[in-house]
Design a protein around this nucleic acid. Structure first.
Length: 365
RNA sequence: GCUGAGGUGGCGGAGCGGACAAUCGCACCAGACUGUAAAUCUGGCGGUCGGAAGACCUACCUAGGUUCGAAUCCUAGCCUCAGCA
């Protein structure tokens, strides 16, 4: 019953902990699969909702999985579409609804689709991902206790159905030990610790390979909700993967790794890159990165006029395509002209920052 | 030299007698972004005081003038651009 030491995927095993960026639509925005490899990123998270809506399973049956489709051969985790319950339905009314059966999505100008726990699993199987995530009912960040409880009950019910469908498909496809992907349950319950505890325990009764810290990880008053993360970790068996879904900022990841979390994904490094925010270690070299420093990293805004004449690299504690080959001056020019290459270089840089961060965390795991 | 058009904030460019410290865009400054409806979104952007509402000052090429009131009308000057010589 020891904690997991590696994550098996189709290409071998990945050491823990690791961070996967989000390739929602089977692409990490602005870069391609070869760029991704160059950042030493070990894997990606793809999204069921988007790929199901935009492509359907025929493509993935034909290509034999999303990895082959992308010609990307790192680890692949597929998200269930559970996050879209919040981002598309609960955050804004009228784009769909949630019932016990599943989730109906109907964004403006698009056809209505129904995603059930079973459908989500079936589709994720066609993606041939290494870890599947159960469809969950995202607890609205503004939910009161009663509403949070409803989302927890539904999440547990859906988890049961997902597990049953998963086992059925594994049997049917003769996916036995070694070839069987992982299945992740997702804990909901908002900031209510007794709900988090109950959800965790009841998911463990159903049986999964890991549990995800679900919901919105930022408290209503602001600040990361470490308490819920701790509650989940406390009641999760040691041999389970603990996954911080959508987490997060570098310092948040460092803290969660300390609690036993070993899998992370987040849009921040890639979105921030596109929004002109680069992550830089406050260190003179990669060897001198010290995560114990309170301020071990800072932000760099690439498009300032004052950088145009700067011949130094963005970071000396980085070995990415950008930092090894180009100056702040050149990047400033590309960024100021809104050249798409600036976004690509920034994305590559931020992903290397995150992969370096995880390399450092692995040293003490 | 003649004819025509025009000179507005860092730049482009609205406004063409009161509602103008002056629409809008760019640039600039600050902030946000957490299982991606996001190469996006907010806010600020003449000066001084104020948290804000607001108050006062200096402003639409220059100098005069008309008017209760002018970036807007008149006169002169300077300058720019286009076409013709």
């Amino acid at each position: 019953m020891d904690k997991p030491t590696s994550f098996k995927y189709q290409g071998g095993e990945l050491p823990l902990p690791f961070f996967f960026p989000d390739a929602t639509r089977a692409v990490v925005k602005t870069i391609d699969s070869q760029d991704l490899v160059s950042t030493k990123t070990p894997g990606i998270l793809v999204n069921t909702y988007h790929l199901f809506r935009e492509l359907g399973s025929d493509v993935f049956d034909k290509f034999n999985g999303v990895g082959n489709f992308m010609n990307y051969h790192g680890g692949i985790i597929s998200d269930s579409g559970g996050f879209q319950v919040m981002s598309l339905i609960k955050r804004k009314e009228g784009l769909g609804k949630v019932t016990d059966e599943g989730v109906t999505f109907k964004p403006e100008g698009q056809k209505k689709i129904l995603l059930t726990p079973e459908k989500s699993i079936r589709f994720q199987m066609s993606l041939s991902s290494d870890m599947l995530v159960v469809l969950d009912d995202f607890t609205d960040p503004k939910a009161n206790y009663k509403e949070a409880k409803v989302s927890v009950e539904r999440t547990i019910d859906w988890a049961k159905r997902s597990k049953a469908e998963f086992e059925k498909l594994c049997q049917k496809n003769k996916l036995t030990k070694g070839r069987k992907p992982y299945l992740l349950g997702v804990v909901q319950g908002g900031e209510f610790q007794d709900l988090r505890k109950e959800c965790t325990k009841r998911l463990v009764e159903i049986g999964f390979d890991g549990l995800g810290y679900g919901g919105w990880p930022i408290k209503n008053g602001g600040g990361f909700d470490y308490k819920s993360a701790e509650t989940i970790a406390k009641y999760t068996p040691k041999n389970y993967f603990l996954y911080g879904l959508g987490v997060g900022k570098p310092d948040e990841i460092v803290k969660l790794v300390g609690m036993g979390y070993s899998i992370f994904d987040c849009v921040l490094p890639t979105r921030d890159a596109r929004h002109k925010r680069l992550y830089v270690f406050n260190a003179a070299s990669i060897g001198k990165i010290n995560l114990k420093d309170k301020n071990f990293y800072s932000f760099y805004t690439p498009n300032k006029q004052k950088y145009v004449l700067d011949k130094t690299p963005v970071s000396k504690a980085c070995d990415c395509l950008l930092c090894k080959n180009y100056s702040k001056g050149y990047l400033a020019h590309l960024s100021r002209m809104d050249e798409i290459t600036a976004l690509r270089l920034a994305t590559i840089h931020n992903l290397r920052f995150y992969s370096l961060l995880m390399e450092k965390l692995r040293e003490n795991y």
